[in-house]
Design a protein around this nucleic acid. Structure first.
Lengths: 340, 340
DNA sequence: CAAAATTACGCAAACGTTTGCTTCCCAAGA
DNA sequence: TCTTGGGAAGCAAACGTTTGCGTAATTTTG
């Protein structure tokens, strides 16, 4: 039998309220009695019933986190960051995955809403192009922060990478290395992150007076397989190129595999760069962009807790932009090229 | 304002109990009235308050999951499996990380216990050598399943890899390839998985009449760095060896780096194999053992739900052993060796 | 020393459900 | 016609807290 506040009250010949006040450091009780009760509570092995507390005073100590997939390096790092920050604040984290579909994403939101979480953190699925049930979160005045994949038009707190400048810096690096005919493997442009990376690439090219041809940008190339075939097509076509900037490390990997198979020298003949700094990029000496994913999680959680503590007071919404870090490796080292 | 069961009752001129019975498909109400109420509830946009329900009737629809670290491929896959299974059953998952310390593990258990989860899934930290607060979970009769890193002596449901046979098969493969002076990089032997892998290795060596020397087994070698230095030591020592079986892919990676640096031909002069089939092993053509980590998560969750549904009825405890899969790649292909 | 102000504590309602018990009504059996 | 039985619905307690309000006890103030 779990012992309750009533048991303590009976044992001490006092009222529930007194015990409650003692346990919660509330005013209206003498220090002596508080200590007495605290002692007794510990002695009896009392543990508060969070459910009852929650029912009575609203607001739970749990936040919800929605990610497209848990077992992706980027997201598992974000989760790590969120969980760390939440634990420090005494909150638990419920995690849901949308599996990259809008339907499951909706389910997740429903679940979290009925679970009375204190707030929601999310990165939307690739299939979700605009807010749907998401608006309901706001209508209920539930704290809501989006990260990485966001709805730009929604007025909420956001945390995301500086994809534009990350891509710009990477492209600039390629140009500085002496590459000039740079092609870009983009992702689905309905998602902000891929759109921004593409824009960063274009700006860098323009700023350096380098032309962008119709075939310079391939959309929907973010997997190893699609990177492989996109490179295959490039090699077969008459388009000449001397560098590939892929919006995803995986498509960069596919490109590397195809190039190596075809006997093309990396980085001598063609430079290759990816984006996200997946663990494998280090092993393959692939130049990439680190997104500080754990920090994204931490920042998003911090922002959420700010909102939770504001407690409905209308406050300015913020956008936190996490700077990226260019990780230069052999795959783009044209100047002192030795094949990798 | 959230609308409650009382609002519906008032609106329909009936008692709360009637509404409750209608909503929960409980007997003691006519079908006609039930439909009427259901309709009204939908019309008013009623959503049950899970907290109140939980308080009244005990038992929540949430399970707790404790892992050493979220952002490890193995565990993030396990989480993926657990979450998938839980969602199908209508449960949510609260995730806690112990960060590989006993202290934080204890915190996690405390949190989950006070959070009234329906059951707990866990893999213990490397620092935790024997059950401590874990016993309390059992005392409270809370469903509890351990996976991967388990306490062998504890009488509970367990899911784990067949580490012994996985290691045995891998060692056997090395022997079949023609390697005979095989050394083993083990992990901390206080953890069951590393102990079992070591035993599998020893048995395979013995069964094939191959000697194990004092220097054949190195303990606590599971990181890239320790794999590197352990290999360095081996090369400097007079001990001759022609294959390394590392209990971790990371130490295998460290070994590969050191061997390549020293101009040792892999797999010609020395074969290298790891364990866990981390994503990078494919890229490096490193032979490894796949643990079917997502399946571990699913099985563990299924077992937990079985226990939850038994509802305290004393049942036999089970051990589910997930078979491993040997993934043979270039790094151990001595027979038709071409350097990688 | 009396009045006022402050503090300590108890009482009971409330949070939104579920559920055992009671009551009511109607049909079936004697 | 009277009894019995059973289904449908209502009443109210309970789950374990928190909290507004009232009152008793204590301290401060003039």
């Amino acid at each position: 039998m779990k012992i309750t506040i009533k048991d303590i009250a009976r044992e001490m010949n006092t009222a529930y309220s007194t015990v409650s006040r003692a346990l919660n450091n509330k005013p209206g009780i003498s220090e002596a009695k508080r200590q007495e009760i605290l002692l007794k509570a510990k002695e009896m092995g009392y543990e508060p019933n969070l459910v009852a507390r929650q029912l009575r005073s609203g607001g739970s100590k749990t936040i919800g986190l929605i990610v497209p997939r848990i077992n992706r390096v980027f997201f598992s790092n974000v989760i790590h960051g969120v969980e760390t920050e939440a634990k420090a604040k005494g909150y638990s984290v419920i995690i849901c995955q949308s599996n990259e579909t809008e339907e499951e994403e909706t389910d997740c939101i429903r679940t979290l809403l009925t679970n009375n979480v204190a707030g929601i953190l999310m990165s939307h699925s690739k299939k979700t192009e605009k807010p749907g049930i998401h608006d309901e979160i706001l209508e209920r005045k539930m704290p809501f922060v989006m990260f990485d994949r966001i709805f730009p038009e929604m007025l909420i707190n956001k945390v995301f990478n500086d994809n534009f400048n990350g891509a710009y810096a990477l492209t600039k690096h390629l140009i500085d290395q002496g590459y000039s005919k740079i092609v870009h493997f983009a992702g689905p442009l309905t998602t902000n992150i891929y759109r921004e990376r593409k824009e960063g690439y274009k700006k860098a090219m323009l700023d350096n007076n380098l032309p962008i041809f119709p075939g310079s940008i391939a959309e929907h190339v973010i997997t190893k397989e699609s990177g492989y075939t996109a490179t295959e097509k490039l090699l077969e076509s008459k388009q000449s190129f001397d560098a590939i900037f892929a919006a995803s490390d995986f498509s960069a990997l596919g490109a590397m595999l195809k190039l190596q198979e075809s006997g093309v020298d990396i980085p001598g003949q063609v430079g290759v760069a990816g984006y996200a700094n997946e663990p494998f990029t280090e092993l393959l000496h692939l130049t990439s962009v680190d997104q500080h994913s754990t920090e994204i999680g931490r920042s998003a959680a911090r922002l959420l807790f700010e909102e939770i503590n504001e407690n409905g007071a209308k406050h300015m919404k913020k956008e936190v932009v996490i700077k990226t870090e260019l990780i230069i490796r052999e795959s783009t080292n044209k100047k002192m090229s030795h094949e990798i």
